[in-house]
Simulated scan of single mutants.
Amino acid sequence: MKALIQRVRQARVEVAGEVVGAIDQGLLALIGVEQGDDPARADKLLHKLLNYRVFADDAGRMNRSLRDVGGGLLLVSQFTLVADTRGGLRPSFSSGASPAEGEALYDYLLGQARAQHAPVACGRFGADMQVFLQNDGPVTFLLEV
């Protein structure tokens, strides 16, 4: 599993003009599910999402986690994140999980996130989504488990 995380001041996801998920300060996490991913990997990814230190402490150093600051977590499924872009001029998605497997694992991750943290918001799996964010920093990291 992969997550492209962005520290945000605010973020929201719209589907057909309707806001389906929104947070204030926190992390926007674009989630990619690959073949072979399982709940254990989702658990490891969630641990990183909640505990990765990307927020400033009193000295201005990245030393606080999402849990430490009580920020929001916005999860958005994004299958293009698992694309193989090493060859040619067209991405290959052969390493991505099937839509059914991807949705099941994304739903698992979302359920676990909601059980362990608040607030948690999300996009809509498989939908044509518009993601709006105010990147804070900018601070962006690719997490892989």
Rank of each mutant, 00 (worst) to 15 (best):
A40Y: 03
C122R: 15
N63R: 12
L109T: 12
G137E: 07
D84H: 07
Q130Y: 02
M62G: 06
G70D: 08
G71C: 05
D136E: 14
R41I: 13
S92W: 09
I23F: 06
R124G: 00
G123T: 08
D128K: 12
F55D: 06
P91V: 12
D24R: 15
V120T: 06
F141E: 06
G123K: 07
K2H: 13
L109G: 12
L45H: 04
I31C: 05
E14G: 00
G70Y: 10
L109N: 10
V120R: 00
V131C: 03
R41S: 12
E18C: 03
A3P: 08
E103H: 06
F55E: 03
F93H: 08
E34Y: 01
Q112W: 01
L74V: 09
N51E: 11
G137I: 08
V19D: 03
L30I: 09
Q116N: 08
R61A: 14
G26R: 03
D58V: 09
R12E: 14
A104L: 09
L110M: 13
E34T: 04
R9D: 08
V13W: 10
F79C: 04
L89D: 10
R64K: 15
E103C: 12
D107E: 15
P91S: 11
G123C: 08
M1T: 15
E144N: 11
A83N: 15
F141C: 13
E103Y: 00
V145I: 02
R86D: 11
C122W: 01
Q78G: 01
Q116E: 14
H117T: 10
Y106H: 12
L142P: 00
E103S: 04
